[in-house]
């Protein structure tokens, strides 16, 4: 009896082991290609970029060790400090505006109204449009002499600002385009979150005599905070990396303290226009640290406002 039992047990262990062994080969076949690709083009370069930040390198000859020189030079550079401030302002303005605007639009679209699909389509159109093309169209709309916006403002009798040439408002002008371009994406996400809210909550609150405003702030908003958190974090990460719009709207004015330059623009300029690869890597690395830091702060801060328990 005992003998049979042992034999039986070793038998299953044997097949299990064989199956496991089989899985290994399959796993190499299935995961191998992606892992090799991600390792070569993403993981290794990410590590290398950390190393390059501490070198002088023109991209052609061998890099030489620079210690902290690049980092020190960056924090002494007006151009970089301007880019750093611009990047923070860009994200600090664009994200709250996008998320609150998107929440408002999504709540309106979530009512049972006619033409919902048409509205949704129209709000989403800019999201699929090539950002370079978006930049060109808005350069034309913002044009001080012949632009549509200033023409309309002139008719109404409002002042006609030099949108991109007035250093005080140039960054805000680009932020407005960015919000225009990306708000549809957040609308769709928040709309998906809203549609997950059970209608029974509203029915119960109606019986209790809650107003529409009460319903929004006491029921809807708390229930969609996980979605809002997700939208905030992802739009923060993407807005810290904005490049295409800036590149098109800045034109060909390298190395000037431009009011709309961002860190990513600086990475491109230093690395590929001025061949200072080490200096450019240092900027990219600081950007990475910023993204990491802001994301950690967000995750830490979510305890205060995100409700997962519903």
């Amino acid at each position: 009896m005992a003998n049979v039992a042992t034999e039986h047990r070793t038998g299953t262990r044997h097949t299990k082991k064989k199956k496991l062994h089989d899985h290994r080969l399959w796993a190499v076949l299935f995961v191998g290609p992606v892992f090799l690709g991600l390792f070569t083009f993403y993981m290794m370069p990410a590590l290398a970029s950390f190393g390059l930040a501490f070198t002088f390198w023109d991209g052609l000859t061998a890099p030489s060790f620079a210690g902290l020189d690049n980092i020190i030079a960056l924090f002494n550079s007006d151009i970089f400090m301007r880019s750093l401030v611009n990047t923070i302002v860009f994200t600090g303005v664009a994200v709250p505006v996008t998320v609150s605007l998107a929440t408002m639009i999504a709540v309106l679209l979530n009512q049972r109204i006619k033409g919902m699909i048409i509205y949704r389509t129209l709000y989403f159109l800019p999201v699929v449009t090539m950002p370079v093309a978006v930049g060109m169209v808005w350069l034309w709309l913002y044009n001080t002499e012949f632009g549509l916006i200033n023409y309309v403002l002139g008719i109404i009798g409002l002042p006609e600002p030099e949108w991109l040439f007035n250093p005080n408002i140039a960054l805000l002008s680009v932020i407005a385009v960015y919000v225009w371009m990306t708000v549809g994406n957040s609308v769709i996400l928040i709309l998906a979150g809203l549609q997950g809210v059970s209608t029974t909550y509203y029915e119960a609150s109606k019986i209790d005599g809650a107003s529409k405003m009460d319903q929004f702030f006491k029921i809807t908003l708390p229930l969609i905070t996980p979605t809002l958190f997700f939208v905030t974090v992802t739009s923060m990460i993407t807005s810290l990396q904005v490049f295409d719009l800036i590149f098109v709207m800045i034109g060909d004015t390298p190395a000037i303290v431009n009011p709309i330059r961002t860190i990513v623009y600086g990475v491109y300029e230093s690395g590929f226009m001025l061949s200072q690869m080490g200096y450019a890597s240092a900027q990219a690395f600081i950007l990475f640290l910023m993204i990491l830091l802001f994301t950690i702060i967000q995750f830490w801060g979510q305890k205060k406002w995100v409700h997962y328990d519903a």
């Binding site: 083009f41 290794m44 370069p45 590929f272 990219a284 950007l287």
Partner: peptide, 21 residues
């Protein structure tokens, strides 16, 4: 988890080493 960690790395960071590669 290693693969997921790639999600955190911004494109700009890997741009220069990739150019060299």
């Amino acid at each position: 988890i290693l693969i997921l960690s790639v999600l955190m790395v911004p494109m700009q960071v890997i741009l220069i080493p990739n150019y060299a590669l």
